[in-house]
Design a protein around this nucleic acid. Structure first.
Lengths: 333, 333
DNA sequence: GGTATAAATGTAAGCGCTTACATTTTATGT
DNA sequence: ACATAAAATGTAAGCGCTTACATTTATACC
């Protein structure tokens, strides 16, 4: 591989000049610029990005930590992020935290030790305190789907409460009065917020919230099936079931069908997130859209702006959910 | 950030010795090793991986190119890969090629210019010739889901033909005689192989292959819906529809249902790949398992072995598909 | 104890760039 | 034409490590 030295020799200029045309910033006359570029072409020169990084103290890499590489939620998020970075010739290093405190912390360590210029973190298990301490370090990061007041300006979140509200409101508008709810793990802020929005809508419609019709799930399919079984076993009847995410909703649907209940006639079901397979389930699932792809792009833009001083479209930290109506809710009015 | 120099000073040894304990290979006495490690701890020293890379000419990074970051297929693949690499402290740089020739080539260039030590490529649009040329370069790579005879030992593939055979055989065993088929784009090798296996099974059961009941799809949901419409419009009746992947199968299911056909009583449907949402559709889709996660791990092991000279479990290049029976095929015997 | 050998440690030259600063060339104004 | 400022280019010192080779120290053997 040709080095900058060989290019400089062939072009008959100094190393510095070659470097200047590479980073086409400084003042270089047109004639020498041409000499240099043609020398580069002749040699098939490619800058060594490692050497650039060492000398410039900038690795042009950003770390991306997600809970899982698979699953319907993270794919679109990573897609949005990779897309904006590659256009800027930044590369993204991925790691998975598996919603586990130790593994998340270890992954962050790993990414930092890899000299990432910045980090995009979708973490769940790590403590607020840890992140606040981390913010004092020298690697900038942005948080996706997590809000910490002390770090507010670097948190990109969805208005989860409003989404919970929209879901319940729609179900109520369809005339349902007995509504069951399968929440996420209630130690998670987003699960809390979704439930809070749900309760707010109920309040507005003067429907009492029935604690017996609440089941705390785990945001996974199994939580939906277990939740349905539990709710079914209570003596409290319900015509609609709102789930705090789509995976649980599909789990509940499958389970309800096994119990011989007709969907959506005998039971209406509502999801949350609008992951792509909600269109594929039967009946197609009404849900709340979570613009995760856009939010990923925004996180990437945050990094571009804060870390690389690029001018980007205005940064937005809170995103609004939207109701997506399909066929899983029956009209009872 | 502390550097190796400061560590050496504090420990009272030379740079080389510090480097030796870091790469714990050379002969270092226990006492000096202890001195050095405690100096490291005291200073909170972390090696600068960029400098290590420059000096050792090894970036410890491997590039991963997939068609899409989202979608049910690539997630498990990336998961398998990231998992094995992080245990070895290698990092993975991701890029998406979007099944487009120019973008795939550009992504490969990008990854190489990032000094990846090796590449894992899931490419579709790039030519065999391009890859054969690439193989002459100095960056080793392994191909996932693509077979090129000249590069056989670095191709990790599924026995697609056998999968096609298994699918058809099962449907035939259930007594179906009129079987429609929606293939993938037939310029793709895997689509061809799956169809070839299908035909082989038909032959074995002495059922003629009806060209009218073949539709060339695109491996996407839309291909399934269009395929169903097309097949439905022909005068040839069929009781079963085999699709060359799960996305098309779900598209076809949705479309069939819109046409008012009962699933699976009036129409049996078979998929291919066993992506996770096949359990969620209704009726749960019978399909062919594609062990993509394991194949990803194997690709990672290939790199570990060929690039980093690690000893790994024996490398396997061709994987076998398996029939997954759920409820989308009705018994006609 | 002295020599031969092995083990431990040190020295210093890079790896391929960037960049502050110095120097030379060119343009500007009178 | 000449002084002066601005633009273009060059020089050389790093960035933080690795590693070949040289040197020193410990170990073994007779």
């Amino acid at each position: 591989m040709a080095t900058i030295y060989e290019v400089s020799k062939l072009a008959g200029v100094s190393l510095a000049t070659v470097s200047r045309v590479m980073n086409n910033n400084a003042n270089v006359s047109d004639t020498t610029r041409k000499k240099v570029t043609s020398a580069m072409n002749e040699l098939g020169y490619r800058p060594n990005s490692i050497a650039q990084s060492l000398a410039s103290n900038c690795s042009n890499s950003v770390g991306l930590l997600v809970s899982e590489l698979s699953g319907p939620f993270y794919g679109p998020m990573m897609g949005g992020i990779e897309n904006v970075f590659r256009k800027q010739s930044k590369h993204v290093i991925i790691a998975a935290g598996h919603s586990d405190k130790a593994r998340e912390e270890q992954a962050i360590e790993f990414l930092i030790s890899r000299n990432c210029d910045g980090l995009i973190l979708h973490v769940e298990a790590v403590s607020d305190h840890y992140l606040i301490e981390l913010a004092k370090g020298k690697t900038p990061f942005v948080l996706l789907n997590r809000f910490i007041p002390e770090l507010a300006e670097r948190c990109i979140t969805l208005n989860n409460k409003h989404g919970g509200y929209l879901a319940a409101k729609y179900v109520l508008e369809q005339g349902h009065k007995n509504i069951a709810y399968i929440s996420g793990p209630l130690w998670k802020k987003d699960a809390q917020a979704r439930l809070a929005g749900h309760k707010q809508a109920l309040l507005e419609y003067h429907i009492a919230f029935d604690e017996e019709l609440l089941y705390e799930g785990d945001f996974m399919e199994s939580g939906g099936t277990q939740g349905y079984k539990h709710l079914h076993a209570t003596s409290h009847p319900f015509t609609a079931l709102i789930c705090a995410n789509d995976e649980m909703a599909t789990g509940a649907m499958a389970c309800a069908r096994e119990h011989g209940v007709e969907l959506p006639e005998a039971l209406s079901i509502m999801g949350y997130d609008n992951v792509f397979f909600t269109r594929h389930v039967f009946p197609p699932l009404s849900t709340i859209n979570y613009p995760i792809n856009e939010m990923g792009r925004m996180a990437a833009n945050w990094i571009l702006s804060e870390v690389y001083q690029k001018t980007t479209p205005t940064l937005q930290t809170v995103f609004e959910p939207e109701l997506v109506i399909r066929q899983s809710i029956a009209n009872k009015t």
